[in-house]
Computed example of a mutant assay.
Amino acid sequence: MAHAKRKPSTILIKRAYDDASPDDGYRVLVDRVWPRGRSRATLALAQWLRDIAPSEALRKWFGHEPQRWEAFQRRYLAELQTDEQLLRMRSLLADAAGQPITLVYGAKDPEHNQAVVLREALLRLLDG
């Protein structure tokens, strides 16, 4: 796979309720739940990686409560360190074939959501 060695130029984060842009590159929905009121055509996704999202238990525990943010980050990063999740992240990087990657999420809070944590994990994987 020649494209597997090409790294994305950037990893962006974008809310599912913001319009897609050609600059988004390879758009991936990283929520376990489909964003309410959004169609597949509107989201313009390359793929939906629901299994890379936080576990159902972690998602429900977090509840997008900012006071739980630090603990959520630690717990989700730990979930992302399993062999299965590392394989998913590596596959995502390879599938993007060097294009920018945009992690699409549905949460209202742009600072306290799983895409922020996943971006950090992907960047670490690229650097390591």
Rank of each mutant, 00 (worst) to 15 (best):
L12Y: 12
P54E: 04
L123V: 13
V30L: 06
D109N: 15
S39V: 09
A97K: 12
A121H: 00
Y105W: 03
W61V: 08
A16R: 09
L125K: 02
R40Q: 15
Q85I: 00
R119V: 06
R6D: 14
V104Q: 11
L92A: 05
Y105G: 07
R59G: 05
W69H: 04
K14C: 14
E120I: 01
L87W: 06
D109T: 06
Y26T: 03
P66K: 04
V30K: 06
G25T: 10
R15D: 10
R124F: 01
R36S: 13
Y76G: 00
A115T: 06
A4C: 14
A107H: 05
L45R: 08
M1C: 13
R88F: 00
D24A: 14
R74D: 05
F62E: 02
L118C: 09
A94V: 06
V33R: 09
S91L: 11
R119E: 05
W69V: 02
L80M: 05
E65T: 12
V33G: 11
A20M: 11
R88S: 07
G63K: 04
A121T: 03
V116Y: 00
P54W: 01
Y26E: 03
P66D: 05
K108V: 07
A16T: 13
L92Y: 05
L123M: 10
D19L: 14
Y26S: 06
